[in-house]
Each structure stands twice: as structure tokens, then as C-alpha cells.
Design a protein around this nucleic acid. Sequence first.
DNA 1: GCCGTTTTCGGCCCGACTGTTTTCAGTCG
Length: 574
Amino acid sequence: MVNKEIAKIFYEMADYLEMDNVAFKPFAYRKAAINLETIEEDVADIYKKGGVKALKDIPGVGKNIAEHIEEYLKTGKIQYYQRFKKKIPIDLEAIISVEGVGPKRAKVLYQKLGIKNLKDLEKRAKSHKIASLFGFGKKTEKNILEGIVFLKKSKGRFLLGDILPKAEEVYEKLKNLKEVERVEIAGSLRRKKETIGDVDFLAISQNPKPIMDFFVKLPGVIKVWAKGTTKASIRLKDGFDMDIRVVPKKSFGAALQYFTGSKEHNIETRKIAMDKGLKLSEYGLFRGPRMVASQTEEDIYKALNMDWMPPELRENQGEIEASLKHKLPELINYQDIRGDLHVHSDWDGGVNSIGDLAKAAQKMGYEYLGISDHTKFLKIEKGLDEKKIILRNKEIDKLNERFKVQGLRFKVLKGCEANILNDGSIDIKDEVLAQLDYVMAGIHSNLKMPRVQMTERVTRAMRNPNVDIISHPTGRLINERDEYQIDLDAIFKLAKETGTILEIDSSPKRLDLKDQNIRRAKEAGVKMIINTDTHRKDQMRFMEFGIAQARRGWAEKEDIVNYWPLEKLLKAMK
DNA sequence: GCCGTTTTCGGCCCGACTGTTTTCAGTCG
């Protein structure tokens, strides 16, 4: 999508402007970039429909930026940007991604040493040309070298599912320190973003020094970025950073609010404070020198006439307005899910037997579990053909009989994850599909189909009277593979019409639908189901990530069908 | 460069840490 290309240029524009000490414009360009990334509609379409005037309706886009966008759409270039690029022809994005190097140092490095990219930077640092520059020094040079090494090792953002367990481990250790009165995870991890840049901890203590000492000596620390009296920052050997900040008890709410972010949410919240003649910082909400609120997040928001909102919502995507109007959604909760309908058993080459999976589901407190083995088109996954599905169903019947005898209120459902073939047909005969409790279908092949055909393909599957759920509806793999080309608005409309349920796949690398699409689906009146796509029984814990994504997409209980008890769920199936 | 129930000018979020500079700029979050 062209939005991303233009956003990238605007981000770089902001850095170039900062380089020249231009005030406020960098902020404007970044804001425009963020909004371009956020809107779902292609700017090329917006421009086609309404010209520059329509572009100006995008938040953060005014006369000048709209003209830049127009220029890019027409010529593929932006002169204003080219001029900067010509003056300082460097790979700015790469160079400032090195910790400790920003736009201003990048400019000096180019003008004095001709450094244009990471390679030049590394070479000059190694031959000690940097230390003697005005404003630099030996330590800065060393930090730059180390920064480059780390950059090569880590690709930036990490999956929520990889980071959360590691963060929780450290969290437990911190909690057990006698100097720590209270500790919380903050930042994007508290907001449960799908990818995490670094982990932020916030603690209360009268005596922070021993905590700082402990923190920088945690096992696996390979670099201490900073260590002060109330703040420290480390890099772990896994390649990601952790920060800790210690604040006094009386500021904890303000600090937690501040360090949870997002940055955009905080900027808006601070503006609301300013409008009321107040000042909000991580130390509290102040009227002049007098502290108005600070102990809890609730106090802060309340003093601003806002309702407290779950961290998952804090992205400046309308939650502030909703909070001011006291109209926040009542999000689905982490304990609300009654069953998982995307689980693969050993019938299709998965690891665990249906019996083991059922046991695991009971441990999770579920009322039902749907077995959704792959079907025959997926030979590599040992997909089941019609005969095997029928055999497998018999095993499930037996198991359910046993549960009944044992007096357990638990049921295993007969399902499958069938394949949507190129023409939109399903790889299993309708009469066999009809024997199942539910049918899930997904795209597992030919992912690069053009948009119109892909939309047609999924559309036809949704019209199949046996297909109840579409699994991982956009096919993305985070950091690996983009969503496939598909007209989601058309899909949402038809899902509502046909009563087809769209999946929120909880697998940490999928999270598909993603938050923004969940919100669009909800607004279109589409029902969704949060599943784990489990291939090994311990993956059933991924449910947490899917629920988090649903909450980030403003989903409420009634939007999610596996919040429902078994009977109501089965009625929702076609 | 954007924005506006304090509107077309005058605002734009705020603070900690580091390194090198002797009073603070740059960077980061």
C-alpha cells in the first residue's frame, strides 16, 4: 500500500528537519505519517475520489502535506524531500537506528567524515576517527560500535508471545526483592501490543539503589545502557532491552499511566490536562505547585473527568473521546472464554491425542473443545480425507460418552480446518461436512492471488452452507509475511449477511484478525471467535494473546462467540 | 506544518541520563 511508502518518507522528513533544528515541523510530519499508517483506505483511492481536498481530511494532513502526497502519487517523488536528501545523501533511517546517534550527530558524521551508511559508520568508528570530533568522545565512539553490533543481532521488534514469558520471569524476581514495595510491567507490553520493542518495569521503593544494582546484574545482561538512581536500562542476550524506573509511592499512578503509553495517548491526555489549567507528568497531575492526583491511574483520569481505561485501548484511536463521554466499551475479559475451536490432534499429524487435548482444555476451565484437524488437500500436514474424518468422529463420540458417564460437563466438538481451494470450493464433500458440529475453512495455498480473485475465492467459501468459520482471515505472519490481498470490507459485509464467523487466531506470530481489523469487523456487526490454532497442547495458553488482540480491537463479550455457552454456540453454527 | 466551542494566529508533552561542554545539548522514551 502506498500509505506506508509515503509514511516512511514523512518519518525521514521529520528526522531531516530535526537535523536542521527546525521547530515543530518534525512533529507535524510524524503525526501525518502515523495517521497515514493508521487509516485503512489507500491514499491513492482517497485522492482519486476527492483530490487534494479529500487528502486534507486525513488528520494531521494540511495544505502542504496534502500537496506532497499528491506529488508523490503523480511522480513517485517529493521535491522537498529530495532537496534534503541531496544536501545530506545518507541512509538516515539506518544511521539513527544506532543507539545514541540521532539526526544531529548523523549530520556531523556526514559533514566531517563523509559517513553515509552503517558500513561507513562502523569503519570510521573502528579506525577511531569519531572520538576526536567536537561533541563526540571515546565513550560515544565505543557506544556506536556496540550499537551497530546489537543492531545486526536484533531485528528490532519481538513477538508479544516471545517476550511476555521472559518479562514475567524478571517481574517475579523483582517482586521478591525486599526493597520493592510494588512492581508492574508497563509500556507496550502492558498494552499487549503484538510486537514489543522493549520491556518497561515500574517500581515503588524507598531505597532504589539495591534495585538498580540487582537489575543491571540480572542473568543474561550483556550491556548496561544507563544506570542512575531511579532509572536503568539493559540489553539482554536474547537481543531486547529492559528498562526500570523507580518512583515514590505517591506518584505511582501517574508514573504507571505515563509509562504505559502509548506516547500518542499520553500527548492527548496531557493536552486535556493543559486545557483544564493542569500539568500532567510522571510525577502527578498538578495545578501550579499543588498536586491534584497521582496515587492511582483512576485518580488521574477521574481528575480529568475521564473514565479509567484498560491499557489495551490506549492508542489514541478514539478511546480518549469515548472516555470523556463515559462511553468506553466493556471489553471481553481474559476469563470469559468457554472453549477453543481451533485445535489440531494427532489425527492430522499434531502431537497430542484428542483425549490429552480434552484434559488440557478442562484444565483451562473450558466447557468445550473443538477438534479442527487439517483436511486432505494439505498433504504435508497429513490432512484427513472423508473416511478418516468419519473414523475420527467415532473416537470423539466415544470420548464424549465417557465424559457423560463420569458426570463431566464438558464436550468435544467435531470440527475441521478445511481448505479453500483456488475456485473457492472446499476440499471435503458437503455430505461429510454436514456431519460435523462445525466447519472451519481457511486459505493455505496460493496466497499471492490478486485481490479480486482472492476476495471472490473466500466469498464463495463463505456462501457454502456448511462453512461456519474462516480461519486466520488475512494469512499474515508477523515479521515474515504480509496479509494477502483481499477486500475486507466486502468480506465483513458478507460475513454479517451469511452469519459466517471470522477467527481471531491467537498464535503469537499470526494474531489474525489483527486489532484494527477486529474493530472494523465489530463495527460491521460481524461475530468473531478467538481460537489458538494449537498444534501442541501447551499452545492452548496462546488464548491470552488472542483475547488481548480482541481487546485492542474494542471487542465486547457479545462480539465473541466462544464467550457463549455450548448450546448458544452450536445454534450460531449454520 | 497543523490546528481551532478561548479559531486564522499563536500555540505545539515532559523529564532522566550520558558525555563532554564548565552550564548543556543530544538522545531516548
